[in-house]
Design a protein around this nucleic acid. Structure first.
Length: 415
RNA sequence: GGACAGCUGGCCGAGUGGUCGAAGGCGCACGCCUGGAACGCGUGUAUAGGGCAACCUAUCUAGGGUUCGAAUCCCUAGCUGUCCA
């Protein structure tokens, strides 16, 4: 959630920044008005409540002294009606403000490049050179089927389109990757954690998936519970509504989970293969930091994901997302895109974001900062999306006969 | 699935309608004592919001109700524990 006080204080500055992310000034203006209205309503209510409390105390004294209370009771009753009204006004204002504020995205950092969409993203650097093929490299779905690693039809049979099944070496490789990634991240100081795949509404509001993106989530029928779209949700929300002590920070965690996404609005995109599935495996990094440390840890997380790809000998590049391509909660995002020779293009395999205090404010994650409470910064990043890593291995490590060499670092995990 | 019990501040724990935001203890912080420490003694020690000073509002798992007034009574939900199937 954006800082409403900041919006009051520096409306121009905040709106200038949010316009870059496609938020209209009118929306921000009404947000500012609503927040002022709520304040007034609150003062009104609290004034009446204070009077009520005073009179109630008098009431007790009257009773003790045996005085007549009928006149006082009449006054109190009259005031009570006013309180009920004032409370209702406040409740409505509160709701209006919240629904508005919760749908405003995070303010992008100043160094985020301007732009509309992915075409305006800025490449930071390339890592490793793609290998030269002396034959025409195949795309992963062909290799997956040829090697018997992945069965797309049976995934559809069990669920619906965009589900798949891994067999034999495909399944083994998947498991090997998960283990390898978790171990790798542990060595980099991220503590392993295992979390639920189902979370409640509050958790999703905390990290920003709700209320705006309910259509992208799988909801459990008849319950206010959802399948997680990323481990970022349960892991970040571990600390929801907590006041951490400064010496606990930074908290650096890594988790493996399945992720579930409806992919609403992605019809027709990546329909072949396993680039865009409804269920996929992912190893995630999450950090909770003091504000002054978040830039440093952001770089660490990007580096960890990049090193992971390098360890797997996968050529990739780092991309700084432009303002228009930035996700809802992100102040800054660096994507890692892996080289796919079959498609002769770089495709996203990891996304590292600093949400600064956007999620912390929504999820109420704070720390004691010299006697006063401050919001922490929260960061998240994939390291890595397992399915897409499989895709990258298949395409980059394919041989002319369609067989696939296993990357060296994974050998010990497979045997 | 059924029955019962409980859920109070960082922790333990008192409190069954009226200065209770909450006794007491532990812990923690500071001070005294000490050569230094322990012990002892003293003082302080929840969170959020508004004015941003006095002060005011809210919070004793959550939500609702009764009442002039609720940690205390009633209802619902969640969690924990015990027992029965």
């Amino acid at each position: 959630m954006i800082d409403l006080k900041l919006l009051q204080k520096d409306f121009q500055g905040v709106s200038d920044k949010l316009v870059r992310k496609g938020v209209s000034v009118e929306l921000l203006d009404s947000l500012k008005k609503k927040s002022e209205e709520l304040k007034t309503a609150k003062v009104d209510y609290e004034t009446l409540q204070a009077a009520q409390n005073t009179m109630s105390k008098e009431f007790g004294i009257y009773k003790k002294e045996g005085k007549d209370v009928s006149e006082l009771k009449a006054r109190v009753d009259a005031n009570k009606i006013k309180i009920t009204e004032a409370l209702e006004v406040q409740r409505i204002k509160q709701e209006e403000l919240e629904s508005l504020a919760m749908s405003i995205p995070n303010i992008p950092d100043d160094d985020v490049p301007d732009g509309e969409d992915e075409n305006d993203n800025i490449e930071i650097r390339k890592v490793l050179t793609p290998r030269e093929f002396n034959f025409t490299p195949k795309e992963h779905w062909e290799l997956a089927e040829q090697n018997g690693w992945i069965d797309f039809e049976r995934g559809v049979k069990l669920a619906t389109s965009r589900f798949s099944v891994s067999f034999g070496m495909g399944a083994k490789l998947e498991r090997a990757l998960i283990n390898f990634m978790l171990n790798f991240n542990s060595k980099r100081g991220f503590e392993e954690v295992s979390v639920p795949s189902i979370v409640n509404r509050a958790a999703l509001e905390g990290t920003g998936q709700l209320p705006k993106f309910e259509d992208d989530l799988y909801k459990i029928e008849d319950q206010e519970l959802f399948l997680i779209p990323t481990a970022e949700v349960p892991v970040t929300n571990l600390f929801q509504d907590e006041i951490l002590s400064p010496n606990q920070l930074p908290i650096k965690l890594t988790a493996y989970t399945s992720c579930f996404r409806k992919e609403a609005g992605a019809a027709g995109r990546d329909t072949r293969g396993m680039i865009r599935q409804h269920q996929f495996h992912k190893v995630e990094l999450v950090s909770i930091t003091k504000p002054e440390d978040s830039d440093k840890i952001f770089d660490e997380m990007v580096q960890t994901a990049s090193d992971l790809l390098s360890a797997l000998e996968l050529p990739h590049r780092l991309v700084n997302l432009c303002s228009g391509d930035l996700g809802f909660g992100a102040a800054k995002t660096v994507d890692l895109e892996v080289w796919l020779p079959g498609q002769a293009t770089y495709r996203e395999i990891s996304s590292v974001s600093n949400t600064r205090e956007f999620q912390a404010r929504r999820a109420k994650i704070r720390f004691k900062d010299e006697n006063k409470n401050s919001f922490v910064h929260t960061l998240n990043g994939s390291s890595l999306a397992v399915g897409r890593t499989m895709v990258a291995i298949m395409e980059n490590f394919q041989n002319e006969d369609g067989s696939i060499t296993i990357p060296k670092v994974l050998e010990s995990y497979i045997n």
